[in-house]
Amino acid sequence: MTSPAIQATLQRLGIPGLFDVHTHFYPEPMGTKVRAVFETAGPLIGRPWPITYRGSDEELVATLTGFGVRRFSQLTYAHKPGMAEFLNDWSAGFAGRFPAALRCGTFFPEPGAADYVVRRLAGGVELWKVHVQVGNFLVTDPLLDPVWGVLAEAGTPIILHAGSGPVATDCTGPGPVAELLRRHPRLPLVIAHLGAPEYADFLAMAEQYEHVRLDTTMAFTDFFAEMGGAFPAEMLPRLTDLGEKVLLGSDFPNIPYDYPHQIEAIEALGLGDDWLRRVLWQNAADLFGAGPDVTAA
């Protein structure tokens, strides 16, 4: 599966491909259960959400790379105690099978979390995922405080879904994250979905804190706009100024539209080729490395 429009964009920008920091792969039966939540409009989804891409890990990776994605993540997230290390074992195996994949990990507020996070860092984890809406916990949970301290010291990025989209809970929103950053100002958070729908608050955190970044996952797409999550046009200059802190994300394969639509929507913002070049490739390549057999432009 290819996209002539994406290939033309890559050629114009002079970059070797896309670097997508927000993609999902799951062990079974977790993958089947996650897809069912989306497709039945579960309580944390709130509306029909038909998934466009299906298949084995091998088939999905082939689809993703066919669109020009040269490096990608394989994010999982724990939602109960005792689950994180099972997922971390699986993720390590996935990265072993697919060298273009970032080595990812997750954690949960539970006794011993800091210990296994330290072990996984030593094993090469490059990116963490935390989803407070699904996990139903606050980032300020005391059981997580030693974990945040370890990760602030290590400098390993954490993709954090803390915005209140698609459905708000008592654990979502910018307030707890602002408190977390007051405690750990060097924490390298990557705010998923640009923090939708609380864009202004999360942009302010990226402006204030040196190591806070944002990912574009689903932002600017027609589907997001229909959900009431349209990015305010008046904030685009702030997003332009944060160009070195914005990373491409997609939520592949759990998206209800074709993958190229995300790229087209970002390009349609008209924020300039230098901004686009950084978002689609260079920012993540600088953060994580260009990967095997790829030389950054």
Rank of each mutant, 00 (worst) to 15 (best):
Glu85His: 08
Glu85Gln: 13
Glu85Phe: 04
Glu85Tyr: 04
Glu85Trp: 03
Phe86Thr: 07
Leu87Gln: 11
Leu87Ile: 00
Asn88Gln: 01
Asn88Ala: 00
Asn88Ile: 01
Asp89Met: 00
Asp89Tyr: 03
Trp90Asp: 03
Ser91Ala: 10
Ala92Met: 07
Ala92Lys: 12
Gly93Ser: 08
Gly93Arg: 15
Gly93Lys: 14
Phe94Arg: 15
Ala95Met: 08
Gly96His: 08
Gly96Val: 06
Gly96Cys: 05
Phe98Pro: 01
Phe98Lys: 01
Ala100Val: 02
Ala100Met: 09
Ala101Val: 00
Ala101Phe: 05
Ala101Ile: 00
Ala101Met: 04
Leu102Cys: 07
Leu102Tyr: 14
Arg103Asn: 10
Arg103Thr: 06
Gly105Tyr: 13
Gly105Pro: 12
Gly105Glu: 02
Thr106Phe: 04
Phe107Met: 00
Phe108Glu: 03
Phe108Arg: 11
Glu110Thr: 05
Glu110Tyr: 06
Pro111Asp: 13
Gly112Ser: 11
Gly112Gln: 12
Ala113His: 14
Ala113Pro: 14
Ala113Ser: 14
Ala114Asp: 14
Asp115Thr: 10
Asp115Leu: 08
Tyr116Pro: 02
Val117Glu: 03
Val118Gln: 15
Val118Cys: 12
Arg119Phe: 00
Arg119Asp: 10
Arg119Leu: 04
Arg119Lys: 14
Arg120Ser: 05
Arg120Thr: 00
Leu121Tyr: 11
Gly123Glu: 13
Gly123Ile: 00
Gly123Arg: 15
Gly124Gln: 12
Val125Met: 01
Val125Trp: 05
Glu126Pro: 04
Glu126His: 05
Leu127Pro: 13
Leu127Val: 05
Trp128Phe: 12
Lys129Gly: 01
Val130Asp: 01
Val130Gly: 00
Gln133Cys: 03
Gln133Phe: 01
Gly135Tyr: 03
Gly135Ser: 02
Asn136Tyr: 05
Asn136Gln: 14
Leu138Phe: 05
Leu138Cys: 11
Leu138Thr: 09
Val139Leu: 12
Val139Cys: 10
Asp141Ser: 09
Pro142Asp: 05
Leu143Met: 13
Leu143His: 14
Asp145Glu: 12
Pro146Val: 01
Pro146Leu: 00
Trp148Pro: 04
Trp148Gly: 02
Trp148Thr: 10
Gly149Ser: 13
Ala152Pro: 14
